[in-house]
């Protein structure tokens, strides 16, 4: 049996036993490197569920949304959702539980041993930006094919960066149903030493500004990064608030800069480094660089890591007398 069949089997059982009302998982996409989130309410439809290394979207955001919408309706018994869950989705759900956005008992976590997701931008780059008509994964190889070309690349080299630093993707912080099947490929694990962040910190403010500028002057403010993020759930985002208006309407640097900085700051102690934002960005901007800086600070200053246990308090909701206060700067 494959992971995919295992997922279907579990889902079928959950639905037909009436344990859950809805399964959220991944379905067949229309592009060779894409899947699309699917919502399954009927046991007969579980064949739509698929599993492959292109299941990039973080499904936690749909789980939260569906539960919120269901709770608005007064009638019926509470909705229960089965979620096809990889480690980063699980971490996001942990954070959502901690922030009282999800009830643990509303979800059934179908824990899938993930072996890393492919990075769409890396695939395209390896194919010399030619159109990809076929992406085939076999073991540690990925075949990229298009009109008049077919190349093999090493799977390790086309994984998303956040997948490389993802530790023990088989062990999830929350799990109810375990997919026991395994991929025959084991993704490499790179100890996260935040060297990229440290490198960036070494730059002068002017240089950092230049790096930021070069990247974000290409932002089209589509908000895909925000909307793809499971942790960006505010019903009114500062970006759209009109009284007071925090943000202008332009795509001039003053506005994109402000948007990104505030979006990133709002992730402090919350971002689970799932990479959904970066994967969603149509301009392939390096958004993760900045959330990682905050993750590093959370770890470095407060020994805090997201997505570990649903029982802990969120970082921003805890205070200890021993907290370092280095970040508090005295007025000059």
């Amino acid at each position: 049996m494959s992971i995919e069949q295992n997922i279907r089997e579990i889902s079928r059982k959950l639905l037909s036993d009436g344990v859950v009302d809805l399964i959220i998982g991944y379905g067949q996409g229309t592009l060779p490197y894409a899947t699309t989130p699917v919502f399954i309410r009927n046991a007969d439809d579980v064949e739509q569920l698929i599993w492959n290394p292109c299941c990039t979207n973080n499904l936690a955001l749909y789980v939260r949304r569906e539960l919120e919408q269901a709770n608005k309706k007064k009638d019926a018994r509470p909705l229960k959702i089965g979620v096809v869950t990889k480690k980063c989705d699980a971490k996001a759900m942990v954070e959502l539980i901690r922030e009282n956005q999800l009830k643990r008992e509303s979800i059934v976590v179908i824990a899938v041993p993930c072996s890393g997701m492919l990075d769409k931008a890396k695939l395209h780059k390896r194919a010399g930006d030619r159109e990809l008509l076929r992406v085939e994964v076999s073991g540690s190889e990925v075949i990229l094919a298009g009109r008049g070309f077919e190349i093999k690349v090493n799977r390790d080299e086309v994984l998303r960066d956040n997948c490389l630093v993802c530790k023990d993707p088989e062990s999830l912080p929350i799990a109810d149903e375990i997919v026991v099947e395994k991929d025959d490929y084991k993704k490499p694990y790179v100890e996260d030493d935040f060297s990229d962040v440290k490198e960036h910190e070494k730059l002068s403010p002017q240089e950092r500004w230049a790096v930021f500028r070069a990247e974000f002057e290409n932002c089209i403010r589509c908000y895909a990064c925000r909307n793809a993020c499971p942790m960006c759930y505010c019903s009114e985002c500062f970006a759209e608030c009109s009284q007071p208006r925090w943000l202008g309407g332009s795509v001039e640097l003053k506005d994109v800069l402000f948007f990104q900085i505030v979006r990133v700051l709002h992730q402090a102690g919350r971002c689970v480094d799932c990479g959904a934002c970066a994967a969603a960005c149509p301009m392939d901007l390096d958004i993760r660089k900045y959330t990682r800086k905050l993750n590093y600070d959370a770890l470095n200053i407060f020994r805090f890591e997201t997505g570990v246990s649903p029982d802990d308090k969120p970082l921003l909701a805890t205070f200890s007398i021993d907290d370092t206060q280095e970040f508090i700067t005295e007025p000059e």
Binding site: T36, F39, C222, Y223, A224, R226, N227, P282
Partner: peptide, 11 residues
């Protein structure tokens, strides 16, 4: 259901 309401498709 799958739409996250970003503006990508229209932008």
């Amino acid at each position: 259901l799958s739409c996250i309401g970003c503006g990508t498709c229209t932008y």
